[in-house]
Simulated assay, not measured.
Amino acid sequence: MAPASGPVRAPEAGGAAGARIRSARKEAGLTQQGLATAVEVSRQTIIAMETGDYAPSVYLAIRVARTLHRPVEDLWG
């Protein structure tokens, strides 16, 4: 059976991870475009992470966490 197509919903209810990402991004003084450029993804990918519509790969999660100077566990734990 093929996996479902479309966005991958993040596992946390209520978008808690997205709120933590958004907060950390703002504390770092980055715009959505600034973070997207730093981690080499589109702004739409950052928006999807912040709204909880996209769960990033481990590799991308590590890049985001490093860019925001946070442990991965603080953002997605």
Rank of each mutant, 00 (worst) to 15 (best):
E50I: 03
S57Y: 06
P56L: 08
A2Y: 06
S57W: 04
G18I: 05
A10S: 15
W76C: 15
R43H: 06
V58Q: 12
E27Q: 14
T51Y: 00
A10L: 06
T67F: 02
K26G: 12
E12W: 10
A19S: 13
G29V: 00
H69M: 13
L75E: 03
G29L: 04
P3L: 08
R25S: 14
S57L: 08
V39D: 02
L60S: 11
E40D: 13
H69I: 05
P71R: 14
A13C: 05
R63A: 15
E40S: 12
S23R: 14
S42E: 09
A38F: 01
L60T: 14
G15F: 02
S57G: 15
P11D: 06
A17S: 15
Q44V: 02
G14K: 07
E27K: 15
A61F: 02
P11R: 13
A16M: 00
S42M: 07
A48P: 00
E73R: 12
G18S: 01
A19N: 06
G6H: 11
S5G: 11
V8D: 12
R22Q: 15
R63T: 03
R20K: 09
S57F: 02
M49S: 01
R70E: 11
L30H: 06
G14M: 10
R66G: 08
T67H: 04
I46Y: 01
L68C: 05
E40K: 13
R22H: 12
G14A: 06
S23M: 07
E50N: 00
L30N: 03
V72R: 14
G34C: 04
R20C: 05
G52Y: 01
P3V: 07
V8Y: 00
E50M: 01
E40M: 07
T67P: 03
V72Y: 01
S42F: 00
A16H: 04
R22N: 11
A28H: 01
I62H: 15
V64F: 06
A13D: 07
E12F: 05
R43L: 02
L68G: 03
Y59A: 15
G34A: 12
A2F: 03
A13L: 07
Q32T: 10
I47Q: 09
A2K: 11
P56M: 04
L60A: 05
T45E: 07
Y54L: 14
V64H: 11
V64K: 07
W76L: 15
G14R: 02
E27S: 15
I47F: 01
Y59N: 14
E12G: 03
A36P: 04
G6C: 04
R22F: 07
R70D: 09
A65L: 09
A17T: 14
G15R: 09
I21A: 05
A38Y: 03
Q44M: 12
A55W: 04
R9V: 10
Y54T: 09
P11F: 04
A65D: 10
E27D: 14
G6K: 11
A17D: 12
T31Y: 00
P56C: 13
A61Q: 11
T31V: 07
L60K: 13
K26A: 13
A17W: 07
V58R: 09
P7C: 10
A10K: 05
T37Q: 10
M1E: 12
R43C: 00
P7L: 14
Y54C: 08
Q32A: 13
A65P: 10
A4L: 09
V41H: 03
G15S: 04
